[in-house]
Design a protein around this nucleic acid. Structure first.
Lengths: 187, 187
DNA sequence: AAAGTAGTTTGATATAAATCTAATTAGATA
DNA sequence: TATCTAATTAGATTTATATCAAACTACTTT
């Protein structure tokens, strides 16, 4: 998943020693002992840090005889940073809130149950969003649990479950359902 | 220092729970309990994470009656990410010419021979650079020739020869030595 | 003033991470 | 084949971090 890659990347560069390594490698590729010497650390420690940096892809290595040169993968680095930047690319929906309220009031009864499933795409999406927000982000729900959840709001759990998947409010993996992060939703 | 701020920032967002919080706050400001509910975590845990995010400045809080709204500071976030990006367009730094002169005078005797091999890395590099500049760029030197050359300046040709290689002033190919171009040298 | 609400602090626990020394591996050179 | 060199692995230690339950604080509402 996207999130794990981002965290792996951020952890990999979120350390003073590793930032220093990045600075060194930004100038030119270096071999391990040179890095150890420059930073006043031992080779095992450098191996440890380089492994982290290689795991996230921001450093690659190239062997030349006995010496391994480590170099900064600037393209990968830029890619990761851009992916973090997109977290912020969320159109604020403040102006829509009133409209949403109206639709919710129209389609929900006094007990908060869904009267009907809206036919209009736009309205349907608002209802689906409203429902999916009651679920936990990151939690894995077995199909039965999803069905039970939906039935609190409407009898036709099969249709609604399919809609959640169709519009990518959730994804399904091996019969287990999980809420997608907001930026994945189709509006 | 720049480095510490960068690390603080990267650590602050380098955690799956906190990335999820950022996603939530990217949409709209939220109060603590809402975040706790969505992520299935307890309020103390959310306080803990929000503190980290506030420390690095990417989240700010605003009180309204009893409720505290946390919101994403997109400007701060962008600023931090840009500062990380600049790591990649780093150029090497070189010691001052005057400083080099002083060190050369200190370590060379009247006949221009090396009194001792400097222990300090920085000084050693200046000496090595001074010596290697007397060699021809592009010419191939057999090991014996290199030894003879070094012995003009110091008895311990083996150590110095190794230092030339270590710091990439020269490279060795099949027992033949050659001076590296300047931009390869390790500073 | 009493009760309620939202958030924080404290203390405990469990897990992860950074660093070192010592031992080992992989490849190059003699 | 034996030796040298650069890097890695293993094991130990220390420090940092994520999480929770329980107690507490600050502010509102009644």
């Amino acid at each position: 998943m996207q999130l794990e890659k981002q965290v792996l990347f951020l952890k990999s560069i979120g350390d003073p020693t590793r930032i220093k390594i990045l600075h060194l490698l930004a100038v030119r590729p270096l071999h391990g002992q040179a890095i150890a010497g420059k930073l006043g650390l031992t080779p095992p420690t450098i191996t440890h840090h380089l492994n982290k940096l290689k795991e996230s892809g921001v450093v690659i290595s190239r062997r030349d005889k006995n010496t391994i040169y480590f170099e900064l993968n600037k393209k990968m680095m830029t890619q990761h940073l851009n992916s973090i930047l997109t977290i912020m690319d969320q159109k604020g929906d403040v102006p829509e809130v009133e409209e949403k309220e109206k639709i919710l009031i129209n389609f929900l009864d006094n007990e908060g149950r869904l009267k009907t499933i809206p036919a209009q795409r736009k309205k349907k999406l608002i209802i689906l969003e409203y429902l999916v927000e009651k679920l936990e982000l990151g939690r894995k729900y077995p199909e039965k649990e999803i069905n039970t959840f939906i039935r609190q709001y409407h009898e036709d759990y099969a249709t609604l479950r399919r809609e959640f998947i169709n519009h990518q409010f959730m994804f399904r993996d091996n019969g287990v359902y999980e809420v997608n992060p907001r930026e994945m939703w189709l509006n």
